[in-house]
Amino acid sequence: MAINNKKQESANADNLVTLHHQKSPATEAFRTIRTNLQFMSPDKKLEVMMVTGSEAGIGKSTISSNLVLTFSMTGENVFLIDTDMRKPRLHKIFGIPNFQGLSSYLSGEKNNLEELMVKHEETGTLLLPSGPIPPNPSEMLNSNKMEKLLKECRKKAEITIIDAPPLLPVTDAVLLSNKVDGVILVAETNKTKKEVFIKGKERLEQVNANILGTVLNKYPVNNSSYNTYENYYYYGEE
């Protein structure tokens, strides 16, 4: 049992690079993303942002986790929500329970959002795990209850990051894209094919989603250019 715990701690350290490796180039890259997002919309603050990608397994959950931690380091009140109710991952990254969460709220089983939020003790970040996998994720995410949840987030948090499902396998992320202030796309170096990335981007454009930029995951650190507009680089594991 102790061995498993050590493995979990090691996995968390690898995923939460901004927390466990604060002087690394990867953490500096996330700080650059944060700064660019803060200045991207001077007239209207980006309060709710969604992280997604065209395909699964490209590190979007790792990106959203580190991005929210980077915002929390400025002292802002931040939320992180796992809306992937098909293959949730955030509870594994942060090592929190997932017996209740977003699906519990959207189904009406639980109506108090604050009771479902889990506080990450090291940073104070509030997390809403996905909860039990429901039979109808798309309908839940497109419901009035989801609209109500996001309104509550805007009232109670300065920044809310939504970890969304991939764009091409299911419609969930497209449905969410018009409910948020902006969308961050994730692609993986040497894995995401150009045509696959473009197809996912086109799905967002078809519904007039506000695409903020692209995070290129697992880009070699020594070659990264952290200040390139709309191209942010992070080297890490899924």
Rank of each mutant, 00 (worst) to 15 (best):
G57Q: 11
T32P: 01
A13I: 11
V48G: 01
E115D: 15
E205K: 13
S64C: 08
D181K: 05
L126M: 15
E109G: 08
T35R: 09
L113N: 12
I159V: 12
A173L: 10
K194P: 02
P135L: 03
K193V: 07
P97H: 13
K155G: 05
E237H: 04
D181I: 05
L80I: 15
M73H: 14
V118Y: 09
N144S: 08
N36P: 04
V174N: 06
M140Y: 11
G75F: 03
K60N: 08
K145M: 10
Y105L: 13
I33F: 08
E28S: 02
Y233S: 01
N222Y: 00
S224P: 00
E238W: 08
P165D: 06
V51N: 04
E122W: 06
M1N: 07
P134C: 10
N15V: 14
S41R: 03
S103Y: 06
R86D: 14
S130W: 13
L150N: 03
A157D: 10
T192Y: 07
M117Y: 00
R203A: 04
E230N: 13
L149E: 02
T192F: 07
H120D: 13
V174R: 07
L46A: 05
M49F: 07
E109A: 15
F71Q: 05
A164Q: 02
K201H: 10
N178R: 10
S72G: 13
F39V: 03
A56K: 13
D163M: 00
N208P: 03
L106K: 03
K179Q: 10
N136A: 12
G53E: 14
Q8P: 01
L80V: 14
P166D: 04
